[in-house]
């Protein structure tokens, strides 16, 4: 998976990612149209399938709205790489299957428009433009289990099936 980097700053909050006025129609294809609307109303027009967001500190702070990672994923973004994430966004991204990486080194080395690829299993990020590879913060084993199951819903489904 690879795509061009879209650089955003620190503390990108969920009202910036998807404003509440857009939450009355939670279909992914609708949320996709308004992703990052409060950062730049035309932001999504510059996104091609597979692109990545490269962010600073505390990405996804604010509301618990899962519509935020859903809109990011649905508009074509394949992963978010950040210095770190706000905790509810972190959980939501894993639960809905949006790949996320905590990797300050990759953030430092990446410029807007660089081609970036990643390997979810290995936890590596490669800046193809600059020829640099970075190791992201590893996920706890327990969380990999959720991701390997295909997200929390599938994970729960297994659990319920095994229990009955």
């Amino acid at each position: 998976m690879s795509g061009r980097a879209h650089i955003v700053g620190d503390h990108i909050d969920t009202d910036v990612i998807i404003p509440a006025g857009r939450l009355n129609d939670p279909r992914p294809e609708v949320l996709a149209r308004y992703c990052m609307e409060n950062l730049d109303p035309k932001w999504v027009e510059g996104v091609s399938q597979g692109d990545v967001i490269v962010a600073g500190l505390n990405f996804g702070c604010g509301s618990s709205r899962e519509h935020a990672p859903i809109s990011i994923k649905a508009c074509g973004i394949s992963a978010v790489i950040a210095r770190n994430f706000a905790r509810i966004f972190f959980r939501n991204a894993i639960n809905i299957g949006l790949p996320i990486f905590e990797c300050p080194e990759a953030v430092d080395a990446t410029e807007d428009g660089d081609v970036v690829s990643f390997d979810m299993g290995a936890g590596t990020i490669t800046n193809e433009t600059k020829g640099l590879t970075f190791q992201a913060e590893p996920f706890p084993e327990f969380m990999l289990g959720i991701m390997e199951a295909g997200g929390l819903v599938e994970y729960t489904k297994h659990k319920l099936t095994n229990a009955s």
Binding site: S64, R91, N92, F142, G151, L152, Y155, T156
Partner: peptide, 18 residues
């Protein structure tokens, strides 16, 4: 503490969360 919808939906199903 706050969580997203998928976490909550699964907690409604199982009565637990991590």
């Amino acid at each position: 503490t706050g969580v997203g919808s998928t976490d909550l939906g699964c907690a409604l199903a199982t009565g637990e969360t991590w």
